[in-house]
Design a binder for these strands. Sequence first.
DNA 1: AATACTGTACCGGCTGGACGGTTTTTGTGC
DNA 2: GCACAAAAACCGTCCAGCCGGTACAGTATT
Lengths: 193, 193
Amino acid sequence: MSKSSGTTPASAQESKSARTRRSLLDAAASVIQSDGVANLTLERVAATANVSKGGLLYHYGTKQDLLNALLDDTLRRADADLEALSDRAGRDRGSFAHAYLDFVRHRSHRDDTAAGVLAAAALDEGDLTIAQRQFARWQRRLLDADGLGETAALLARVVGDGLWLIDLFDLAPPDDRQRAALLDHVGRLIDEA
Amino acid sequence: MSKSSGTTPASAQESKSARTRRSLLDAAASVIQSDGVANLTLERVAATANVSKGGLLYHYGTKQDLLNALLDDTLRRADADLEALSDRAGRDRGSFAHAYLDFVRHRSHRDDTAAGVLAAAALDEGDLTIAQRQFARWQRRLLDADGLGETAALLARVVGDGLWLIDLFDLAPPDDRQRAALLDHVGRLIDEA
DNA sequence: AATACTGTACCGGCTGGACGGTTTTTGTGC
DNA sequence: GCACAAAAACCGTCCAGCCGGTACAGTATT
């Protein structure tokens, strides 16, 4: 097949281990989305990843380890997305704030793993510190390095997080038109601040 | 003591049952706050309420029943608080929106049960519909009966919910000064809308 | 007499984690 | 190239503990 070109797996920068770990993380995310966090069990994750339970425990010695790794991974991806959006914006002021808003613009509650993971971590006495640090970093970025006033920066953050929460729990989310209008409006407020 | 004036408890509009149920709800909230939702067990709730496990199950036949009741109760209180704040505001426009903002103004993540309950319900496959209906009601109230424009109403909602989320998970919440500045600013935006 | 409990004993299922064994990969000397 | 050992990756099973829920007989309260 296309994989393993010969004797040496060589070229791949991914070790076998890393690949398995990734598939375990993906499996965990998938289980959370389809079955809910309450039904997130090691066996189910292992099965979804086509790995035995023992194999899972080899990589993540405890369920908490798995959760932490998943949370970390999810936040890392979100951060990367934000950076990309920020770069693409190419403004001299408020590019990160706009990225923050754009991040939630086209995001339905359907495709959101971060939320479930966050909740899981919170409930299972998990290390929210991972998430807390990340949000602190974003907050600093908005306040110190985005060229906006304090209040404008906070507004972007709070609106973004608010929509995220609403989507997460499906708490009467505004429809697409309302959402777009709100985000446009907030974007304008930020630019004029 | 001040209670039970004589032979008949009479005057009290609270039956024995109602009092016990309340103490069970309070106990559940207390356990969630002190031990986390993950450690919310029927026995612990019963013990905290000075009730036997059998007694708990007499009132709430299943754990889910207890959770639902707690969520309902918490939302009901929040709604009452909002109404009170709205009445006190005494504006002809946007009094509910201002109430919504004031609700989170002086609220630290410490004294927040609703969040934990919400998370618990979400995780335990619970009926989020209770919460969803309540938020839908608030949203309708803001949009239809508060005399504001659509975007202004949504702004109040999203900012309120956003701060709530941030407090809940302690995700780098803005300090008191920043928070006050943000809420004042949003309040002004709403009035000028 | 009805309601509101207490207390205990128990069950059954689930799950996290341990553990010993097996396969695969990797490193090394020849 | 090859043998071969050691380490890494992984399997499958077993177990102990916990927890929700049942059952029920008895006691207190109203």
